[in-house]
C-alpha cells in the first residue's frame, strides 16, 4: 500500500518531501480504520462521496492537507473492495487498470490531472533559455521588470555615493604624516628645544643660587623667602617703570584726540568690555616664552 502511494506521488513531481508525509498518515489510518466510518460503507461509494472525491480532485492544488486526505479516503475504499483494486488506481503505472473500475472515474481524472501537470512542467523545464541578464522570467512584462531593476541600481548607486561623500566629509583635515621628520618638523623641534633650553637654564640659574638650602628646612626657607622677595621687588620696579612710560604715551595720545574726560561722553564708551580693558597691558606673570 505504502509503496503504491509513493509511486503515485512520484507522478506529481513532489516525491521527496511528501512521500514521508503520506507514509506516516497511512500508518495512522490503518490503526484508525476499525473505529472510522470506512467500515460501514458499501462496496460502491455513494454518489455523495463520489461528488466529494471529484471536488477534491479538482481542488487538488498541491496543497498538503488536501493531498493527505484524498489518498486516505481512497485507501479505505480500495481496501474494502480488493487488493487488485488498490493496484489499479495508481494511474501513473497503468491507466487502463484504473478504467476498469468505472466507479473511480474521479480518481482517474485526478491522476490524469497529475499527468497533465507533469507534462506541462517537464515542457517548461525542457525549454532552452537564452542567456538573459534578467534570468528566466515567466511573466510577459519583461520590460517592467527590467525597468524596476534599473531603477534599483540607480538608487543603490546614489546611496553608495552619499555614503562615500559622508565618509570623505568626516575625514576632512585628517592627514596621516607620511614622513615623520621633514624639514618643517625639524624646524619646529628646534624651536621647541630652544624654549626648553631657555627654561632649563633659567631654572638652573635660579636654583643654583639656593643650592645647599633646603626649602623644607624652616631656616633655609626664611632665607629663600628673603631672596625671592628681593628679586620680586626688583622685578616689580622694572615693570612699574615700563607701565609709567606706557601711561605717558597713552596720555599724550589722549590729549591729541581731544576726547572728553568723563567716560560716558567718549565714543568708545561701552564698546570695549571692562573685563578685557587691560588685557593687552597685562604682564606675563609667570615663566613663559615668547619669541
Amino acid at each position: 500500500m505504502v509503496g503504491d502511494l509513493q509511486i503515485m506521488e512520484a507522478g506529481t513531481e513532489k516525491m521527496a518531501k511528501k512521500g514521508k508525509f503520506s507514509k506516516r498518515s497511512s500508518k495512522s489510518n490503518k490503526k484508525l480504520k476499525p473505529l472510522g466510518g470506512a467500515v460501514k460503507k458499501a462496496k460502491k461509494p455513494s454518489k455523495k462521496m463520489i461528488k466529494l472525491f471529484r471536488k477534491r480532485a479538482r481542488a487538488y492544488n498541491s496543497d498538503e492537507d488536501e493531498e493527505e486526505t484524498a489518498p486516505d479516503a481512497m485507501q479505505s475504499l480500495h481496501e474494502d473492495s480488493s487488493d487488485d483494486g488498490s493496484e489499479g488506481y495508481n494511474g501513473s503505472d497503468d491507466e487502463k487498470e484504473g478504467d476498469r473500475y468505472g466507479t473511480h472515474r474521479g480518481i482517474t481524472r485526478f491522476t490524469e490531472g497529475c499527468r497533465a501537470f507533469r507534462t506541462a512542467f517537464l515542457n517548461i523545464m525542457k525549454k532552452n533559455l537564452q542567456n538573459d541578464p534578467l534570468g528566466p522570467i515567466l511573466s510577459a512584462n519583461r520590460k517592467l521588470v527590467a525597468e524596476k531593476l534599473a531603477e534599483e541600481g540607480i538608487e543603490q548607486k546614489a546611496k553608495a555615493e552619499a555614503k562615500k561623500d559622508k565618509h570623505l566629509a568626516a575625514k576632512t583635515g585628517h592627514v596621516t604624516p607620511a614622513s615623520f621628520l621633514d624639514t618643517k618638523e625639524k624646524l619646529l623641534i628646534s624651536v621647541a628645544t630652544k624654549g626648553v633650553v631657555k627654561l632649563f637654564n633659567a631654572v638652573n640659574k635660579a636654583q643654583s643660587s639656593q643650592n645647599g638650602l633646603n626649602p623644607s628646612n624652616s631656616k633655609d626657607a626664611k632665607a629663600l623667602a628673603k631672596q625671592r622677595k628681593a628679586t620680586f621687588l626688583s622685578d616689580i620696579k622694572k615693570s612699574t617703570e615700563r607701565n609709567l612710560e606706557n601711561a605717558k604715551v597713552h596720555h599724550m595720545n589722549k590729549a591729541n584726540d581731544d576726547e572728553p574726560a568723563w567716560a560716558p561722553l567718549r565714543d568708545s564708551y561701552m564698546l570695549t568690555s571692562s573685563k578685557l580693558k587691560d588685557w593687552d597691558k597685562m604682564e606675563v606673570n609667570s615663566f613663559h616664552h615668547c619669541f
Binding site: R228, M282, V284, S286, F287
Partner: peptide, 27 residues
C-alpha cells in the same frame, strides 16, 4: 596677544625657584 595669554594660562604657571626639572616631561 590675546591668543598667547589664553594659551599661557591654560597650563599652570611654573615657578622657577621651586620647580623640579624632572617633572618637566612634555612640551
Amino acid at each position: 596677544k590675546l591668543t598667547t595669554i589664553m594659551f599661557q594660562n591654560i597650563f599652570p604657571a611654573i615657578d622657577i625657584y621651586t620647580v623640579k626639572l624632572s617633572s618637566c616631561q612634555r612640551i
